[in-house]
């Protein structure tokens, strides 16, 4: 016990612990692996079931986490911070989606300027990976889980190498590797989390106190 304990650090640690269960890692891994597998198989629609599994995992996440970590209402400051973060994330996501839509319209109607065509041919994967890496890095900053910075770097690197390996028909390898590493890490962290935080007995109520 020490009065030197930094209450801000405690609050940060508590907040981060609600994102350190491995499920977000597995969610990201499924999305990356879905993209990689669709590149290998040539079936673009393979992304859909992979993304569906990922989303189902996230929807099911509270049932796994809350009984083990407990329910907490964070401070007003934290709630305001989280709200601001969600707004920023929404704005970035919307801008990215709009940009994607513009690109889609330009390329599907063959109206893209030549410089853009060349740029996409050379840097598409790096740009795609860069956008994903930025999202993950922002998430890492907001939830305070340093491992997500590593994922951001890993994904960006994977996509850059994908661009380089494209002429050799091996572009899927770095993405599958990155996704697999994330999946293994996520599974290990989830296993550790389930062992560290077993399900408690029936919730204590005033009758049992």
């Amino acid at each position: 016990m020490t009065t030197n304990m930094n209450l801000k650090d405690i609050e940060k640690k508590v907040f981060s612990s609600y994102f350190n269960d491995g499920l977000w890692d597995i969610y990201g891994a499924f999305l990356i692996l879905g993209f990689g597998l669709s590149m290998v198989s040539g079936w673009d629609y393979l992304m859909i079931p992979m993304a569906t599994v990922a989303v189902m995992l996230l929807l099911f996440r509270p049932r796994i986490i809350k009984p083990r970590l407990g329910l907490v209402k964070f401070s007003i400051e934290r709630q305001v911070k989280t709200k601001k973060a969600k707004i920023i994330a929404f704005i970035i996501l919307t801008c990215t989606a709009l940009l994607g839509l513009v690109f889609f319209i330009l390329f599907s109607t063959n109206t893209a300027p030549e410089w853009l065509d060349n740029w996409m041919a050379n840097y598409f994967f790096a740009a795609f990976g860069g956008i994903q890496a930025i999202f993950i890095a922002i998430a890492a900053y907001l939830v305070g889980v340093w491992r997500y910075y590593v994922y951001a770097a890993l994904i960006f690197l994977a996509y850059v190498i994908t661009g380089i390996l494209r002429p050799y028909d091996m572009e899927y390898i770095p993405i599958l590797l990155a996704g697999s590493l994330m999946l293994i890490a996520g599974a290990a962290i989830l296993t550790r989390f389930l062992r560290k935080y077993p399900l408690p007995p029936k919730e204590l109520d005033s009758a049992s106190r």
Binding site: L7, V14, L71
Partner: peptide, 29 residues
């Protein structure tokens, strides 16, 4: 020490349940 920990972990949040406190403080039920 145990009560100090309980108060510290409640101080940094608005409210929390027993499971949160048990998880954070490591105390038995």
């Amino acid at each position: 020490p145990a009560r100090f920990n309980i108060m510290a972990y409640l101080f940094v949040v608005q409210s929390a349940d027993y499971t949160y406190l048990k998880t954070q403080t490591g105390l038995s039920w």
